[in-house]
């Protein structure tokens, strides 16, 4: 079981590396080697570490541990075919981690990151519309049932395209360098992770690697259906590359624009779900 976790952390970090490499090549730069993010985590974990004097000490450390724990839970929910609702509850709880990271340090930059994270809470609304759509179609929220449904009826991607688009935007919002990543935008230094250095940052990066793995894999499982591991890996990389293209070619949006776009998407999906509820 622990082997799944360690595997997912490394693959997630590798995916981050591929993401950076792809963005660099699209922008005409050589870019770092794809294992750079793994080296990053190791590097951070070897750095001298302490807790800033201004920080709320317990919270400062607890948030890092919670971040890793939360995404480990998500991985196991996904692997055991548990409840989709639980998987996305975990995704929402990640929001708390973001707030906690920013608020706990006492740094103004962290605080700005946290406030932006509050504002971008709108990104969670498309998620529940997605869940509603999937529930209306498959009649179940257990991931194992959804996979069984897809094995019988073909991928949900074609049956529920708008829901897939909504989830795609949700996944996009959580990627590094994404147009929606206002909480870690560079004009506020590193946003909510500004004050988490050394081992804390290593732990966070590991958690974020896990997060990327879980989100991409969840998209594959939910919308493309069960497939062999190798094929799933290829699909994940392709999905990631499509996200990299968007990240590379679009500027960072202003916080209010991100909210507008996400609420707009959510509104469209809600209309879609209501229409489907009426027609079906």
């Amino acid at each position: 079981m622990i082997e799944y976790l360690i595997f997912a952390v490394f693959v997630g970090l590798l995916l981050h590396g591929i993401h950076r490499k792809a963005i660099a090549r699209i922008q005409g730069r050589p870019g770092p080697p794809i294992w750079q993010e793994i080296l990053h985590v190791l590097k951070f974990s070897f750095k001298e570490t302490w807790i800033p004097a201004t920080a709320s000490q317990t919270l400062f450390v607890a948030v890092v541990i919670i971040a890793i724990g939360v995404w480990s839970t998500a991985l196991f929910v996904l692997l055991t075919g548990g409840s989709l609702l639980l998987l996305f509850a975990v995704y929402m709880l990640h929001k708390i981690v973001e707030h906690g990271l920013g608020l706990s340090s006492g740094s103004p930059y962290g605080k700005f990151g946290a406030i932006r994270s509050v504002m971008s809470a709108a990104s969670e609304i498309p998620l529940f519309a997605t869940i509603a759509a999937i529930y209306l179609i498959t009649g179940s929220l257990m991931i194992s049932d959804i996979q069984a449904w897809q094995a019988a009826h073909g991928p949900l991607l074609f049956t529920a395209l708008p829901a897939a688009i909504a989830l795609y935007i949700v996944v996009l919002a959580k990627m590094h360098y994404s147009p929606f990543a206002v909480i870690e935008s560079k004009e506020i230094v590193s946003g909510n992770v500004t004050e988490h250095f050394g081992v804390w940052r290593a732990g966070l990066e590991a958690a974020f690697g896990l997060k990327t793995f879980v989100l991409l894999y969840a998209f594959i499982v939910l919308f493309l259906g069960p497939m062999p591991l190798l094929l799933a890996a290829v699909a994940m990389v392709l999905l990631l590359l499509s996200l990299s293209f968007i990240c590379a070619l679009s500027p960072m949006l202003s916080p209010f624009d991100t909210v507008t776009i996400q609420i707009g998407t959510a509104g469209l999906i809600v209309v879609y779900v209501l229409l489907m509820g009426v027609i079906v």
Partner: peptide, 22 residues
């Protein structure tokens, strides 16, 4: 039970490992 134990212990393992070797 295995999942709960892993979810609880893994974060501590990761963070403590870093703290230990630096």
């Amino acid at each position: 039970i295995a999942i709960v134990l892993n979810v609880v212990a893994f974060p501590f393992f990761l963070v403590a490992l870093g703290l230990w070797w630096n």
